[in-house]
Nucleic acid binder design. Structure first.
Lengths: 127, 127
DNA sequence: TAGAATTGCGTTCAAATGAAAGCCAATCGA
DNA sequence: TCGATTGGCTTTCATTTGAACGCAATTCTA
């Protein structure tokens, strides 16, 4: 399939909400936006329309309203975005990103625990 | 200090090289670009100029050429960029990003080791 | 039932971005 | 010394983004 155009920054926050909700109308997305982030209905509508045009979302009609749902698997998109970032910002190395995340942003104890078990699982699952 | 405008994607790859080199001319940056990524001299020059205008780099003259060097600490910039991404893509949670990095991108054994020690250090250094 | 609100669809519009091109002065190699 | 190269500075230019309008149809609501 022809590679779809990249998701723009602002589109990301919107598509991310659709992923969470599974399927959503413009209004639902608007309401799910973090309180500080105040966008107009029309603006959200535009972003969703563009996301559909780019191939990231598909829609179906529910009465008068339109419901947007993922068309590309979220982790596929996440991978593309993160890969791109890692390349541009860390010359392709992911370790520096971890380092930043750990040292600069801090983690709760619970998070540390979960991270540990992810690592363990990864090790177990290979040679 | 007046918040500087965000670094654009393509500018990131260029500023990242300047960070690595410490100080660099247009040509040096051009040559340090990954082989696949083919940009024109003029293009790199433009990006560097914009980065200076945005406040990320400062310059000094070396004979006929101009040398670009960081003006904002790299980790400061990295933090801004990563924070922004985490907000837009994961609603502010960093764990999903780790999860993606670990499960989806894979790590070498060496990397796993280093990660472990980062975690350990983090734990030791708190209550 | 008449006006208010909600949505879709099409447009708009300025600023930012990605990617150079043009012209000119310094300089280097033959 | 003369042409090629290099770099600086200025300008260009299409596309993408971010952020909304306007109108028409539909649906609540007083």
């Amino acid at each position: 399939m022809a590679k779809r155009p990249p998701v723009a920054k602002s589109e990301l926050e919107v598509v991310q909400i659709v992923w969470q909700l599974g399927e959503a109308s413009v209004r639902q997305v608007l309401e799910a936006l973090p309180a500080q982030r105040k966008l107009d209905f029309k603006t959200v509508q535009t972003y969703l329309r563009r996301l559909e045009a780019k191939g990231y979302l598909r829609t179906r009609r529910d009465g008068r309203a339109k419901l947007y749902a993922p068309r590309v698997r979220p982790d596929q998109v996440v991978r593309e975005v993160v890969d791109d970032l890692v390349h541009r910002l860390f010359a392709g190395e992911s370790l520096p990103l971890f380092q930043h995340l750990i040292q600069d942003r801090g983690l709760t104890d619970a998070e540390i625990g979960q991270l540990r078990s992810m690592l363990k699982e990864l090790e177990d699952r290979k040679p």
